[in-house]
Structure formats: C-alpha cells, structure tokens
Design a protein around this nucleic acid. Structure first.
Length: 413
DNA sequence: CCTCCACAGGAAGCGCAGGAGT
DNA sequence: ACTCCTGCGCTTCCTGTGGAGG
C-alpha cells in the first residue's frame, strides 16, 4: 500500500534538525578555525574606522571551512552597524565581471536592476551608491578562480577606488586552486591579492570535534553512536580532510538509519553511507564522461554480465560462440574488451578509436576509480591486464544508456 | 634458440578549434 | 576581420616484454 504524505511526515526520525548537517549551515562556533577567523577579522578591521581594508585571498581545498569562516566574519561585521556592506557572490553562478556587478546592484540597489543595462551603467550606479555616504563595499567572491574575465574585474575594482572620493571597495577572494594566482596577469595579481592566507585541511581529530558539534544539534539525543562520528571523521580525514564530505557521510548515515527504522545511527550506517556517497560521485562521473569512455565501460559491463571473464581460444573464426562461461573472475583481458568496444561503437553509431587510444581511455577510467586493472604478470602470455568494473555492471549499463538517450540530439548531424 | 603473439606505452605527427596578436 | 599559434584528441609507428610454439 502507498503511504500518504501525512504518514510519511509522521514517520519517526532520528534527526532533530537536519539542516544542521547541510554544508550551507553556518554554526555559531566554528571549531578549529579560530585563528583563521581572527586573521580575517584583523584584516578587515580597518573598515570599522571607515578605511578601506586590504584585499584578501583565501586558499584551501574543498571542505576546509573557507566559505564558512568568511561568511562567519561577514555576519559579525553586519551586526556591527558600520558603513561596511558585504556582497557575497558565488562565482560559479556569477562568473563574469558583468554578472558580478549586476548581482551586486540587484542585492543593494534593486530599483536599478533591469536586464539589458550595460556594464558602465551598473558601475556608475554602484560608485554613486558607495560614494553617497562613504560606504566600504566588500566583494566576497567565492570560487573566484572560475571568473572568466578576472583581469578585467581586477582592473574595474582598482579603478573604482581611484575614482571614488569617499568610501572604497575591497575584495575577499576564495579559491580552492593554489595555481589560480599564476595564471593571473601580474598587474592584477599585485592589486588583487595584497594579503593571502591558506586554510589547511582538517585533521581527523578536528573533524571529529566538528562532527560532534553538528551531530549534537542535528540528531536527536542519543540517536547517534560515537563510533559513527569517529568513523565518519576518520574516513573524511583520509580523503583530504574535507569537512563537507564528513558531514555528508553523517547525513546519509542518518537517512539510512531512518529508512531501516533504526533508532540509532551506528558506524555500520556510516560505512554504508560511504559506499552510497562514493557510488553517487562515481555515477555522476560516469554520466558526464566522454562518449567513448562510456562505451568502453559499457563493453566491460556487458562482458561481465555475460559472465565470461576468461575466454582465450585460438579462435580465428570470430564466432560469437559464448556458451561456456568459465568464471575465473579475475577480470577481462584488455584485447577482449577492445573487441567488444568496437562492436558496441557500431551499435552506438560512433567510430571506434584506435587500440592505442583505447588504452589511454582505460588508464583514465582507472584514475577515476571506475575500473580496476591488474597486471597479468605470469600465467597469461606476454604482458596484459585484467580489467574489472568497480561497480555493478547492471547499474553502469543502465546509467550509460540513459545518458546516451539524454543527449540524442547530438547523435546525428 | 628464434619467431610469433598479445599486449604496454613512448614518440612523432596530424587536423582541428579557440584564443592571441595585428 | 584576418592570420598565427597553441593545445587537444587522436592515429601511426615503434620498441619492449614475456609466454607459446616451432
């Protein structure tokens, strides 16, 4: 029978407040980022005296608390009633100078936000606004490395400060690519990044503290095992110390526990969550893979489904004589998979790539962790490899077929 | 022993698209 | 607007490895 919405809503849950586990949640206290926060506050403190703070660039891998820390400081600042205005902009969405200015106008001067105005118009309006009572406008540019015309943007910002008689603009850039600075024009480099700081990945211990704090708020009392928290922290610490990943594990573990009707989320649930999250990531990767790598995966998957993992006969006759599936299960031979790949390419109406390139595909797929390869060593003639899919063949095939149908527009032409 | 097979992976080169320079 | 350059995806060719078979 089908549950009604009311019933679904009334289901017991071990969460108290799920949102606390979301990566966007901003807690009152950010454990193990006290020093960084202090440094940011120090950096922008001139604003309290009505002076323009130095520009700041914050580096760090994903899930090291960069965005959280900056937002945290921004909120503190907003509560101070100063002349400072903070414009938070996610550059993944607003990825050009024009869009960024437009977004700021929209946030602070909605009356002037009309599509179709030129860059100069927004620029003028913003300058007037900043100048009117000597405001300090701080742009917070999250994921600044994806801005396309970053050099132009740098120029625009420095020019603003030259033209302003009162007030000023400054910038806090957040980037997870350390290489970002190198590809910048030297002039914008020096003007944009007067100070910089690096966020180190969290250690396992630090992650544990963070998770504990969130779990205490997010889960009902006694609904999560300490071992679960520890495991999630340990897994994430191994994986670049990404707090976002750690939180995702906890959230997922809670959901899994809920679904199975458990009243306690345990380390077993976390382990399950890890598999599920990894799978999600991989499946996402698969569906965005180039066509031919998808076909290679498909070839591998269908051979694995047919159950023959070892079929080296003298065979000159091509003969799709399958029949005996000797399930050695060490994986498939690379030549065998290539044949299937060529065959499938025809089916997908794509021109098969050469063997050489096929090997490149294989090593790409291996690096993505989608397949596992093992050197034959001895036993097999010469030097070859046994290839295995890391995930269930059924799922992989289903996924690829749907993603091929999804973009059938590109098929012909 | 040599040769062949089945494969790995390096080097060179080719056609193309997109960006820089003029 | 034009060319020129460069990086990318790919092919071709080549050398190397190690068991199988003559």
């Amino acid at each position: 029978m089908v549950e009604s919405f009311e019933q679904i809503l009334a289901r017991p849950t071990i969460f108290r407040e799920r949102d606390v586990l979301s990566p966007h949640y901003l807690p009152d206290v950010l454990p193990h980022r006290e020093k960084e926060i202090e440094k940011i506050m120090l950096g922008i403190s001139p604003v309290l005296r009505g002076e323009r703070p130095r520009n700041l660039l914050v580096y760090g891998k994903t899930g090291t608390g960069k965005t959280c820390s900056v937002k945290f400081v921004a909120e503190k600042l907003a509560a101070m009633q100063s002349s400072a205005k903070v414009a938070y902009i996610n550059c993944r969405i607003y990825n050009s100078r024009y869009r960024i200015l437009q977004k700021v106008v929209k946030d602070f001067l909605p009356q002037f936000d009309k599509a179709g105005y030129g860059l100069a118009y927004f620029y003028e309006k913003l300058l007037d606004w900043v100048e009117s009572d000597g405001k300090i406008l701080i742009y917070v540019l999250d994921e600044i490395d994806v801005v396309k015309d970053i050099d132009d943007l740098a120029y625009t910002l420095t020019r603003s400060n030259d033209e302003l008689k009162k007030g000023g603009v400054s910038l806090i850039g957040i980037s997870n690519k350390l290489s970002f600075k190198e590809k910048l024009d030297p002039r914008s480099r020096s003007s944009l990044f007067e100070t910089e700081m690096v966020f180190a990945p969290y250690t396992s211990y630090q992650l544990k503290e963070i998770l504990k704090q969130r779990a205490a708020k997010g889960f009902a009392d006694g609904a999560i095992d300490e071992a679960a928290v520890n495991l999630a922290a340990a897994i994430a610490a191994q994986d670049n110390g990404d707090a976002r990943y750690a939180l995702k594990l906890l959230l997922k573990a809670g959901e899994i526990a809920d679904e199975s009707g458990a009243k306690l989320a345990t380390d077993a649930h976390v382990e399950q969550a890890r598999r599920s999250v990894d799978e999600d990531v991989s499946f996402e990767a698969i569906s965005t893979l180039p066509r031919h790598q998808q076909i290679v995966l498909c070839a591998l998957a269908s051979l694995q489904l047919e159950g023959r993992s070892y079929s080296r006969l003298s065979g000159n006759g091509n003969g799709n004589g399958n029949g005996n599936g000797s399930s050695g299960s060490n994986g498939l031979l690379s030549g065998e998979v290539y044949e299937k790949y060529v065959q499938l390419s025809r089916k997908f109406r794509a021109e098969a790539r050469s063997v050489r390139w096929y090997r490149e595909y294989l090593s790409d797929l291996e690096m993505l962790g989608l397949i596992a390869m093992e050197d034959s060593g001895k036993g097999q003639r010469g030097h070859t490899r046994f290839i295995r899919l890391s995930y269930s063949p059924e799922k992989v095939i289903g996924l690829i077929e749907s993603s091929v149908f999804g973009e059938k527009g590109a098929l012909d032409a």
